[in-house]
């Protein structure tokens, strides 16, 4: 199990406030691990530390044996990790196609000179990249394909979340971090995401998911990790974790925040 993503005693301080403290966690290849916990438990901070958006104050993140703790975000992306954001961060003025093409930034290579001169290989690369984008968009049935040339800012909230996921998938990363992928979706749309997650697992992706919807977590996760006040309080298979007194305590403490369906 070890050797894929290993987080060791990770800590993150924001001006004396410990957003994440002493969290260790491993994710094995092909696994789906969910990260749950009340609001403010440090889930997104942990995501930020893994992807380089925030720099960890202590501890280490290793990916495929390589220390990625203090790498800048684009280098971590190069290593093969992609993420979505809790608050949607799309390129609003760009179309669906262009957004997802930016996701393919690292799987394409054309630069300034080739962008201007457009040699044959550049055109081929561009065609292939666009074809690949369409292939990825097909995963979302008829949700995104017909809107491929629309600016993402005119899409519905749920579709914007789908574009974010598509933007990750297009580069076939090995590890995907999904930060509340179903936030703002109705049960039917959520079900679509659940099915997508299963398809991704079957295709061999490794997923680390932050999610509030317990039914989804129970349904898809191989393993659940519970954070509270920046610390890991429990870890294990879904059924086991929900029985854990510390977890129940943490959620009872902030029942209004725990969106258990």
């Amino acid at each position: 199990m070890s050797g894929f993503l290993e987080i060791e005693r990770l800590g993150k301080d924001y001006g004396g406030v410990k957003a994440v403290h002493d969290v260790s966690l491993t994710v094995g290849e092909g696994e789906i691990v969910s990260l749950i916990g009340p609001n403010g438990a440090g889930k997104t901070t942990l995501f930020n530390c893994i992807t380089g958006t925030a720099s960890a104050s202590e501890g280490q993140v290793r990916y495929l044996g390589q220390d990625i703790t203090h790498l800048p975000p684009h280098r971590i992306a190069e290593a093969g990790i992609r993420r979505t954001f809790q608050h949607i961060r799309l390129f609003r003025e760009m179309t669906v196609m262009e957004n997802v093409l930016v996701g393919a930034h690292l799987t394409t290579s054309s630069g300034i000179a080739s962008g201007i001169l457009r040699p044959a290989w550049q055109k081929k690369e561009e065609h292939a990249a666009r074809a690949r984008v369409l292939e990825v968009l097909e995963q979302f049935e008829e949700r995104l394909l017909p809107r491929v040339d629309q600016k993402v800012k005119v899409l519905s909230y749920a579709n914007q979340r789908r574009v974010e996921i598509a933007r990750c998938l297009v580069s076939t990363p090995r590890l995907i971090l999904l930060d509340e992928p179903t936030a703002g979706m109705n049960p039917h749309e959520t079900q679509g995401i659940v099915e997508l997650i299963f398809r991704l697992r079957d295709a061999g992706y490794t997923l680390l998911v932050v999610e509030h919807k317990m039914r989804l977590v129970m349904n898809v996760s191989d393993r659940v990790v519970v954070l509270d006040h920046g610390e890991k309080i429990a870890e294990g298979p879904p059924a086991e974790v929900t029985e854990n007194p510390a977890v129940i305590e943490a959620y009872l403490g902030q029942r209004e925040n725990a969106a258990i369906e």
Partner: peptide
Amino acid sequence: RLVNSRFGRALVAIREDQLAAAAMGVD
């Protein structure tokens, strides 16, 4: 041609959301 290439898309992505662009591997 430049702004309608991979290069140009990276520029606009940076304008729209620098952090997200970096997360997609844009230096």
